[in-house]
Every structure is written in structure tokens, then in C-alpha cells.
Amino acid sequence: MITDNVLVAFSGGSYSRVVLQFVHEWQVKVLKNYEASRDRSLPVFGVGVAFVDESTALSTKTSDAVALIQSTVLSLSPPAKDLHVVPIESVFGSDSLEERDRLVKLLDSVSDETGKEDLLLHLKMLSLQKIVSENGYNRLVLGTCTSRLASHVLTATVKVCCLLCPH
């Protein structure tokens, strides 16, 4: 009886690796408890893994990263995890060439690096939300370090101050 489907956002970095390992070990423990229970009424959850490929936006190749991520996910003990690898431009539709052109045009319209970084983060979250909604997940787990969280808080504070106190 699966009660939840959890999607783990996975970049291949150390924080997302820790989160994936933690969620996997938690799932294994819950599954063992379910199988050990007499009435099999304990909740069990499914896990999927998502990698948002930003290579078009960053003008890089990610084939090695994708292979490493596939290897990492496949190396986990059962139960198996569904792996979703989606290009960031897929938020625009299904025609890959048109999507790429649209993403490049959008990024080119943003003049400053901070704005581009914010836009990419927003598009990445939209990509993850799209995976969640299209694949029946009802939870999304991100691996974020405290430095990144502090950076978000400071950035948001500065943006609000700039809006409230015009130069």
C-alpha cells in the first residue's frame, strides 16, 4: 500500500547525494517494517529521482553527469527508483529545437548574471514541478546546504529593500 510518492531532485552534488541516500534508507526501513507487520497496514512510499539538465542554458555538455547520475541511482539496493532526466527547456513544450531556441532567447534577454541565475533557478523549479505533476508524485525533496539557504535569504532581503527604497 503506497501512500506517498516522493521525488528527489538530484544534481549529483554532495548535498543531493546525502538526501537521496537518506530517503532511500528511510524507504528501505519503512518497507521492512511493512513486510514485518501482520496486518500490512503501515504506510509505504515510492521514490523517484529527477535530474534537470541545464546544459542548453549553460552551454555545456552533461553526458558524463547523466551517466554518473544513472549509475548512482542504479547502484541503490531495491526497491528500484524511477529516474527522470529532463532538459530545462522542456518547461516550454515538446519540440526540442523550438524549446532550445526559446530558452536561449529568454536568457539572452536578461542582461545581468544574478537575474540569469534567478531565472534558471525558477525554470529548474518549474521543471521539477512538471515532473511531479506528470508522474504522480506528491512530495518533492531538495538537498540544499545552509550556505545556499542563507544566500537565498540575503538575496530576497536585498531585493525587497531595493523595491521598498528606490534609489
Rank of each mutant, 00 (worst) to 15 (best):
residue 60 T to L: 12
residue 56 T to P: 01
residue 145 C to W: 06
residue 88 I to E: 01
residue 101 D to A: 08
residue 118 D to Q: 14
residue 1 M to Q: 12
residue 71 S to N: 10
residue 100 R to I: 09
residue 113 E to V: 09
residue 14 S to Q: 15
residue 14 S to L: 12
residue 71 S to V: 07
residue 39 D to H: 13
residue 10 F to Q: 07
residue 147 S to G: 07
residue 143 G to W: 02
residue 38 R to V: 13
residue 70 Q to S: 11
residue 83 L to N: 01
residue 5 N to S: 14
residue 149 L to C: 06
residue 71 S to Y: 07
residue 163 L to M: 13
residue 62 T to Q: 07
residue 31 L to V: 12
residue 47 V to K: 07
residue 158 V to M: 01
residue 66 V to A: 04
residue 134 E to A: 10
residue 47 V to I: 12
residue 63 S to E: 15
residue 65 A to K: 14
residue 8 V to A: 04
residue 21 Q to R: 15
residue 93 G to I: 06
residue 118 D to N: 13
residue 3 T to M: 12
residue 5 N to V: 06
residue 119 L to N: 05
residue 89 E to Q: 12
residue 163 L to V: 08
residue 95 D to R: 03
residue 25 E to F: 04
residue 81 K to Q: 10
residue 60 T to S: 13
residue 62 T to F: 04
residue 127 S to Q: 06
residue 82 D to K: 15
residue 2 I to D: 08
residue 146 T to L: 13
residue 65 A to W: 09
residue 113 E to T: 06
residue 39 D to G: 10
residue 47 V to H: 04
residue 151 S to D: 13
residue 106 L to F: 08
residue 100 R to S: 13
residue 148 R to E: 08
residue 89 E to D: 14
residue 152 H to I: 12
residue 121 L to N: 11
residue 28 V to T: 13
residue 5 N to H: 15
residue 133 S to I: 02
residue 146 T to A: 08
residue 155 T to W: 00
residue 110 V to I: 15
residue 86 V to T: 06
residue 65 A to L: 14
residue 39 D to T: 15
residue 159 K to V: 15
residue 92 F to P: 00
residue 166 P to G: 04
residue 10 F to I: 02
residue 137 Y to R: 04
residue 20 L to V: 00
residue 70 Q to W: 03
residue 134 E to Q: 14
residue 137 Y to L: 01
residue 125 M to C: 08
residue 64 D to N: 09
residue 145 C to A: 03
residue 77 S to M: 08
residue 143 G to M: 02
residue 112 D to E: 10
residue 127 S to H: 06
residue 91 V to W: 00
residue 79 P to Q: 02
residue 138 N to W: 07
residue 43 P to V: 04
residue 120 L to N: 00
residue 91 V to Y: 01
residue 58 L to H: 10
residue 162 C to T: 14
residue 131 I to S: 01
residue 41 S to L: 14
residue 68 L to Q: 15
residue 139 R to N: 10
residue 138 N to R: 03
residue 6 V to Y: 06
residue 79 P to G: 00
residue 134 E to M: 10
residue 94 S to F: 05
residue 80 A to Q: 13
residue 126 L to Y: 00
residue 86 V to N: 07
residue 129 Q to K: 09
residue 12 G to H: 07
residue 86 V to K: 11
residue 155 T to Y: 00
residue 41 S to R: 14
residue 116 K to H: 05
residue 120 L to I: 12
residue 111 S to N: 07
residue 120 L to C: 06
residue 107 L to Q: 02
residue 64 D to P: 00
residue 156 A to L: 10
residue 131 I to D: 03
residue 91 V to C: 02
residue 135 N to G: 03
residue 84 H to K: 02
residue 67 A to N: 07
residue 26 W to P: 00
residue 32 K to N: 10
residue 94 S to D: 11
residue 96 S to P: 12
residue 118 D to S: 11
residue 150 A to W: 00
residue 79 P to L: 01
residue 130 K to G: 07
residue 159 K to W: 01
residue 167 H to N: 09
residue 87 P to D: 11
residue 91 V to R: 01
